[in-house]
Nucleic acid binder design. Structure first.
Length: 843
DNA sequence: GGGTACTTTG
DNA sequence: CGAAGAAAGTACCC
């Protein structure tokens, strides 16, 4: 994008501009709405991956890369430079860690070659995308600063306004940053995943493997199904143990990003000195040779190692973005940054670590590893969790298996990166975490407890050898629907009041789908199908929450206490169970969300083109909105509760009656009879939805429709299609007219006639203009000929420009729009005019 | 101490 | 026209 110039709207907002860039890179054009994989790529278009290419491991980047080099010149030497990373971060946070932009190959196939709709959830100037100046990689420092600044700006102003910590704008900006961060992280992991395919890296690692290991990892087909899996597990165990000992964790890996609560936390903020130093592919290769680095790099190298043996291996990352919802933990407050009060904590930590290590040892010895119940409000929820010491950057040595190994203080005991291995015999992907939990085949053992500030499992994404990625969070999260979902982008951005409609997707859900679609394979393989079914089954198997809070916004279940104002239970709904609030509280009935419906007032239904049936009883009465109690004294007002007051009145006074969909019929407007279109008291006709066009009438949406109908003497009614609210006044929006259907043809003809007339007038105007130009031109030619008659031709040439300037000046006098930088060549002069309205010099 | 539920407050 | 909570503090339980 070096050649691209910055133009268009000023991109003053750092996040939005970064966002745009990320979108440009990571998804704007993947917004193809066809679900069918067939539609996703047109023939001839580069595809991310074809199923056939799956077998070929390391070649798949080759040809495409060259193609890219042609298209995106500045990105040709990508592997080193494109992966510019921003190791901003980490401790105390706003830990925006390790942001990478990988601007190479498959991520970059867009740039205006398709006419897709932009991301529907973001309203940004799509054209501005084309003018985005530089890739993020150009100025990593700036990006870093921008994001930091943005984060700072987004911190809740706590001290200033205690009671409104998060405004609506701030909330939505948080969501936006969350999205940006997700895209950055995806990009980062995608790059790391690609590095795992590097032949150099794999060659550097391969010597670590013994022949026995390789044999175990690739069991012969003569073994039984069970035997093959056992052999694979055995091999993985050996390789994992070996690699854990060989690889020294000397640096800090990715940590959960946290919001700062006030700007001071960011002012004194500095990166830990042991932050991961793997920035480019060279560093990665170096790490492979020296076997040193962060635990993340360790897991990545483990992935590369396994891939080098031919085992199908996915790189798995639990993305750690800045939270999009309030209530997430924030940066720890440092009371006195100067006082070294952290020293005593070291022993504490050591002790905790010792306990943790013992437990780990125990659990890895026994076949049954850590209980997966930690997360679900289990009494001993945090049993394994090492108390986090909110303090930066000191590395404490511990008796290490590997002499070079250090313990990174404050790192979560649960991994951020791990791998998934394909158990070919069972056609199943299985997780292997050699470093932290040291488990394999135990997806539920990898989720950190909710109290872990450093590691939060919200998005688990797997990257395959072919570069495709997939969201497999549901495999790992123990309470996806009740807990994890709420922290994800899907949990926010419910569309208005349709929450009761379980089939509708939230806007966040759509956004995430689109973001991930970019990394999807064009065709799901059979294996993917199997996996998808399993993930869906995992979700369905999720047990019902046992506490009240988890039922809030639950996609499957609902509690009456969490109903929205206009939500109502379908008659005859059977409770699916009961919960007690706490351990002693009245039992509440649990309903299924699909039994919850939205109810609307008569007027609302009318707006949707429906009419409440005769004799239907309202299913509920909406309490009237409490009028603004202005400056009454608090005591008086608050003591007498408003809901009570309302309840005392009769039903009619209680509020507006609302009805369910089933209580309504399609609204049938009065028909058009004898060419008379019915109208409301404003002379319009309500056409909120197409079905509200009366029988015998037709809705013609055109600006001139009314004019045409008027000219023809046809009875018509302007169509009222909605209201536009600005401030507190709603103004009617009229869109086209409704006319008797027998007149449609005539009216449409009249409309085209009017349009033609206009075009004709315009044409005439241009013709006139052109003729005037011609006459002026000829006149000036004549004058020139007379003046220069018999003069030296060279001199004539030199003076030509002057003469024409004269003519141009005259033209300008008559409002002829002529460019200042006019060429002195006659033809060009007129060519320019032609564009503006001459129209006489074509061909 | 951590998790949960409820209340208060703008 | 039309809508909606969320942060703290407190009490309670394992």
């Amino acid at each position: 994008m070096a050649g691209r110039k910055r133009r268009g709207a000023p991109l003053d907002d750092p996040v939005s501009s970064i966002y745009r860039e990320m979108l440009a890179e990571a998804g704007a054009n993947s917004a193809r709405d066809g679900q069918s994989p067939l539609k996703r790529k047109r023939p001839g278009e580069r595809s991310t991956q074809t199923p056939a290419a799956e077998g070929s491991r390391q070649q798949e980047n080759g040809p495409r890369r060259e193609e890219d080099a042609e298209e995106e010149e500045e990105e040709d030497d990508d592997d080193e430079d494109d992966g510019v990373e921003f190791e901003d971060v980490s401790l105390p946070t706003p830990t925006l860690q390790t942001i990478t932009r990988n601007s190479d190959d498959e991520e970059e196939d867009e740039d205006g070659d398709d006419e897709d709709v932009p991301f529907e959830d973001v309203d940004f100037d799509f054209e501005a995308l084309q003018s985005i100046p530089a890739p993020l990689g150009d100025q990593p420092k700036d990006l870093n600063l921008n994001l930091t600044a943005q984060k700072e700006a987004m911190t809740p102003r706590r001290s200033a306004d205690r009671r409104k910590p998060v405004t609506k704008e701030e909330k939505s900006r948080r969501v936006e940053v969350h999205k940006v961060h997700l895209l950055c992280l995806l990009s980062h992991v995608s790059l790391r995943n690609r590095w795992c395919n590097s032949p150099e890296v794999q060659d550097a690692l391969r010597p670590l493997l013994s022949g026995k290991m390789i044999k175990y990892l690739n069991p012969g087909s003569q073994l039984s199904q069970f035997g093959r899996t056992e052999s694979l597990k055995n091999g993985l165990q050996q390789v994992g143990d070996m690699f854990r000992i060989k690889f020294a964790i000397t640096e800090r890996g990715i940590r959960r990003a946290l919001w700062a609560e006030d700007s001071h936390q960011l002012q004194d903020y500095h990166l830990p000195d042991d932050i991961e130093s793997t920035f480019a592919k060279d560093d990665f290769l170096e790490a492979a040779k020296s076997l040193k680095g962060s635990r993340d790099v360790g897991a990545q190298l483990f992935c590369a190692l396994l891939r080098s043996t031919g085992v199908q291996t996915r790189l798995v990352c639990s993305l750690q973005p800045l939270a999009c919802v309030p209530g997430a933990p924030t940066m720890p407050k440092l009371k006195n940054p100067r006082t070294p009060s952290k020293r005593p904590k070291a022993d504490e930590y050591r002790a905790a670590m010792a306990i943790y290590e013992t437990k780990q040892a125990e659990s890895s010895n026994s076949t049954d590893t850590p209980s997966p119940r930690r997360r679900l409000g289990h009494p001993h929820a945090a049993a394994y969790h090492v108390p986090t010491i909110p303090s930066p950057s000191t590395v404490i040595a511990r008796a290490p298996a590997n002499p070079a190994r250090k313990v990174i203080r404050g790192e979560s005991p649960f991994p951020v990166y791990w791998v998934e291995i394909l158990d070919i015999a069972h056609q199943k992907w299985q997780p292997v975490d050699p470093f932290m939990t040291r488990t394999q085949w135990k997806p539920k053992a990898l989720e950190p407890p909710a109290s872990d500030r450093d590691n939060c499992m919200t998005y688990v994404v797997v990257f395959e050898t072919d570069g495709s990625a997939k969201d497999v969070t549901r495999r790992y999260a123990k309470a996806y629907n009740s807990k994890t979902r709420k922290m994800r982008i899907e949990g926010v951005g419910t569309i208005g009041s349709t929450a009761a409609d379980s089939t509708s997707r939230t806007s966040g859900e759509r956004w995430w789908r689109r973001a991930m679609r970019r990394y999807a394979k064009p065709w799901p393989t059979d294996l993917d199908q199997i996996e998808n079914n399993e993930l869906a089954a995992d979700e369905a198997k999720e047990p019902m929450p046992r506490n009240v809070a988890d039922f809030k916004d639950h996609p499957v279940y609902a509690l009456e206490r969490h109903f929205r104002r206009h939500e109502v239970l379908v008659p005859g709904a059977q409770p699916a169970g009961t919960v007690g609030a706490g351990n002693k509280g009245a039992l509440e009935r649990i309903y299924r969300r699909r039994d919850v419906r939205v109810a609307r007032s008569r007027d609302k239904w009318y707006r949707l083109g429906r009419e409440v049936k005769f004799g239907e009883e309202p299913v509920k009465f909406l309490p009237r909105r409490v009028t603004r109690k202005s400056t009454f004294d608090d005591d008086e007002d608050n003591d007498s509760d408003d809901p009570d007051k309302v309840g005392l009145f009769g039903d009619d006074a209680a509020g507006t009656p609302i009805y369910m969909f089933e209580q309504t019929d399609l609204y049938k407007p009065a028909p058009v009879v004898r060419g008379r279109v019915p109208k409301n008291k404003f002379g319009n006709l309500d056409v909120y939805v197409p079905s509200m066009v009366p029988e015998g009438g037709v809705h013609v949406v055109h600006e001139r429709a009314a004019q045409a109908a008027f000219i023809l003497g046809v009875d018509y009614a302007p169509a009222l299609t909605g209201f536009q609210f600005k401030g507190r006044r709603g103004t009617a929006v009229l869109n086209g007219v409704v006319i008797p259907s027998e007149c449609e043809e005539a009216v449409r003809a009249a409309i085209t006639g009017l349009d033609d007339l206009d075009a004709e007038i315009e044409q005439e105007r241009r013709t006139l203009k052109a003729l005037r130009m011609w006459s002026r031109f000829l006149k000036s030619l004549r004058i020139r000929e007379r003046i220069w008659a018999g003069a030296d031709p060279d001199e004539e040439d030199r003076a030509e420009g002057t003469d024409l300037d004269k003519g141009k000046g005259r033209a300008a006098d008559e409002n002829m729009d002529i460019d200042d930088a006019q060429s002195d060549v006659t033809e060009e002069y007129f060519m320019e005019e032609d564009e503006e309205g001459g129209g006489f010099l074509i061909d």
